[in-house]
């Protein structure tokens, strides 16, 4: 069995092994192996290519951009997605604009350990995919499975553009698979995680699993729920979403991120604009509450969508 976290480590090992242009740069990623051990033993296996950085997210990303311009393929590990805001300027103003301005590709991969876990609180739990997806020139990946964590990270390193790789910390140890995949869907292609006919849930990352659990619960009540795992937020696979809505006539977009703007709003805007006539009911969405992410598990468990709250929303959607 291999976990989601181990898949991320194996993808990095594979990238280092296959491509001499790859190096890893981040806080504590060297001999220590990273705050979550996503780079455990890689510094020993690849001497000089897995480098501890100072606590300097701006300079971490800025230097990765420079190295990428010079032909390298850096992987930057942010210790937590939340800390990437210190490097935000380099990501959105330097990396994202580089190809457009100069015609020179900027192939960096920035790994963001994202999302909530019990007890993590306001500054170790954030989901920032919408923030980065807003900027032209970036690719946003949000793998929900062990297989995708592995295959998509390898693909991220191979892509000629800056990729923001949102790996979910809640899935690090919880999620297991038997083997690593030999092939996968490409970036920009969503996956039907569960087929159904009564309503569509469009989601990504850890919320795929909450949605699948909600679909299981509703199956006991006789409803068949289709669950779409977007895999990449940008580009967003609108075609797969619309095809599903064409089958079910109902859509619930679910995201762990905050409600204002964001991925779920984008999905519903597209469905309303491009598939209004496919809808049998007003589209719905479910996000976290519009507050910082709370520390205490009692509060955290209510702050974010769960299988229960998704199931409740689906019941409303199915009755409307």
């Amino acid at each position: 069995m291999i976990t989601y976290l181990e898949a991320i480590r194996e993808a990095q090992r594979q990238a280092l092994e296959n491509d001499p242009r790859v190096y890893i740069y981040g806080q504590d990623v060297g001999a220590f192996g990273g705050a979550f051990k996503a780079t455990k033993s890689l510094a020993q296996s690849f001497p000089g290519r897995v480098l501890d950085s100072p606590i300097s997210e701006d300079a971490m990303v800025g230097s990765a951009i420079g190295a990428a311009l010079q032909g390298m393929r850096p992987i930057v590990e942010m210790q937590f997605a939340d800390f990437s805001t210190v490097g935000f300027n380099q990501i959105v103003n330097q990396a994202a604009t580089m190809f457009w301005r100069t015609g020179l590709p900027c192939p960096i991969t920035v790994r963001l350990p994202s999302g909530g876990t019990p007890g993590s609180g306001p500054f170790h739990s954030q989901n920032l995919e919408a923030l980065y997806a807003h900027y032209p020139g970036l690719i946003l990946m949000t793998p929900a499975t062990v297989e995708d964590a592995y295959a998509m990270l390898l693909e991220a390193v191979a892509i000629d553009d800056p990729v923001i790789f949102c790996e979910h910390k809640y899935l690090y140890y919880h999620l297991k698979a038997d083997t690593l995949p030999k092939e996968a869907l490409p970036a920009g292609k969503a996956r039907v995680a569960r087929a159904g006919r009564d309503a569509t849930v469009v989601t990504y990352s850890a919320m795929v699993h909450e949605s699948l659990a909600a679909a299981d619960e509703l199956a006991t009540e006789g409803w068949e729920i289709e669950v779409i795992d977007l895999r990449t937020i940008k580009p967003l696979d609108t075609d797969t979403v619309l095809a599903s809505v064409a089958r079910t006539g109902r859509i619930l977009a679910v995201g762990e991120a905050w409600p204002w703007g964001g991925v779920t709003a984008e999905i519903l805007a597209r469905v309303a604009a491009e598939g209004f006539n496919l809808l049998d009911a007003p589209p719905m969405r479910l996000n976290s509450k519009d507050t910082p992410v709370p520390y205490h598990p009692n509060l955290w468990g209510t702050h974010r969508p769960t299988a229960r709250s998704i199931a409740d929303s689906l019941r409303v959607l199915l009755r409307s």
């Binding site: 701006d58 300079a59 800025g62 230097s63 420079g66 390298m72």
Partner: peptide, 14 residues
């Protein structure tokens, strides 16, 4: 100020 670390990165690549 953001340009300085880009220069650093090119020098690291060298």
């Amino acid at each position: 100020g953001a340009m300085v670390s880009v220069v650093n990165g090119i020098l690291m690549a060298h």
